Amino acid sequence: MPVVFPGPTISLNTAHAFAAFFTLSYVGSLYISRNARLSFKKEVKVDLRDGESREKKRDERWRDDPDVIRARLVAASLSTVVSCLTVLVLMRSLVPGYLPFVVVLESTLARLGFTLEFNDQQRFSIVWPCLVAPILYLGPLFGCYLASSLPFQQRWSWRGSAAPIVMTWMGLRNYIMGPITEEIVFRACILSVYHMAGVSHAKMIFLTPFTFGAAHIHHAWETYNRYGRNMSALQHALIGTLFQLTYTSLFGFHCAFLFLRSGSILPSLTSHVFCNIMGLPRFREDVLRYPQWHYIIRTMYWMGIAGYIYTMIHWTQAPDSLYWPVPGLKLGRY
């Protein structure tokens, strides 16, 4: 049982300060090391066709270069550890001094969504929230089925489908380490401090994800350089950044809700990995590719949306969530 408090333990301004520290330290860590920083030729300014990336110069460093990815994974991992230790230190300062350190550690892990022991009921309550995102993607999954690209279908293979996810530096960043570090920092750490400040569920769900979206704005600089350093490149960078800010914020609403309702980092983490692998739904492409399945594809997409609404309400509540306790269950609040 984690240590709980009868009321807010830190001020809202303090929570804002911690959230800013977590965000800035995560993004800033990507630029501290010379190996992690990007570099572009200043004189490179070319006219390209719309949507076309220029050729990489010899001495430049782009974000998809293997050595850049390695350095950034190390930096992001270290920053994530620092953020978790910061929450631990904060908890140590709030918990009565007579309690042993192991109690503080267990309480911190619980607030970060790391449950060390599961009984049968807890396993059940954690597994169901992990299935919410796949339900939403019923339409795209059906499209993958028609394309025979689901695991163990005809066009799926370990070398062509799975290996790029788990055995390449880009795959490790996009589908494993990126989701893990981002969910720990932008969900677990940030939501834990706002919860200590007594912030409402609605504000934690709909406001804190903007920090997650803002953390991706720095990608605009690389986009501007890759697409020619001209007005077209600037427009491309601005539109791409606005789209990414919108998408990551909306996705953050989803993950924040899952984290608070389940009290575990696992549902939001698995959703992050799954959605990164699937990408954005491609309804129009699926319909154009398989016109004979038009009505079934449309039905599957609508079923996914309806199923998502239902499962977000009925499949996400854990009976022992620290952040969203079942009404009438005395678990404490903060």
Rank of each mutant, 00 (worst) to 15 (best):
V4K: 03
P8S: 13
T9R: 05
A15Y: 01
A19P: 02
A19W: 01
A19G: 01
F21W: 06
F22A: 15
V27A: 07
V27R: 05
K41P: 00
K41I: 06
G51A: 06
D65C: 07
P66Y: 04
V68Y: 00
R72L: 08
L73H: 03
A75E: 09
A75R: 00
L78D: 07
L85H: 00
L99I: 13
E106A: 11
E117N: 08
D120C: 07
G139N: 04
G143H: 02
G143P: 01
Y145K: 06
L146G: 05
L150D: 15
S157K: 01
W158T: 11
G160H: 06
A163D: 07
T168M: 12
I176P: 02
M177R: 03
G178Y: 03
E182T: 03
E182W: 00
F186Q: 06
A188F: 08
G198K: 00
T208G: 02
F212T: 10
A215E: 09
A215N: 06
I217G: 04
N225T: 08
N230F: 02
M231A: 04
G240S: 09
Q244V: 13
L245W: 04
T246P: 04
F251S: 08
R261Q: 15
R261P: 01
R261A: 15
R261N: 15
I265A: 07
P267V: 13
I277F: 06
P281Q: 03
E285M: 09
L288I: 11
W293G: 04
G304L: 14
I305S: 14
Y308F: 14
T311I: 06
W315R: 03
T316F: 05
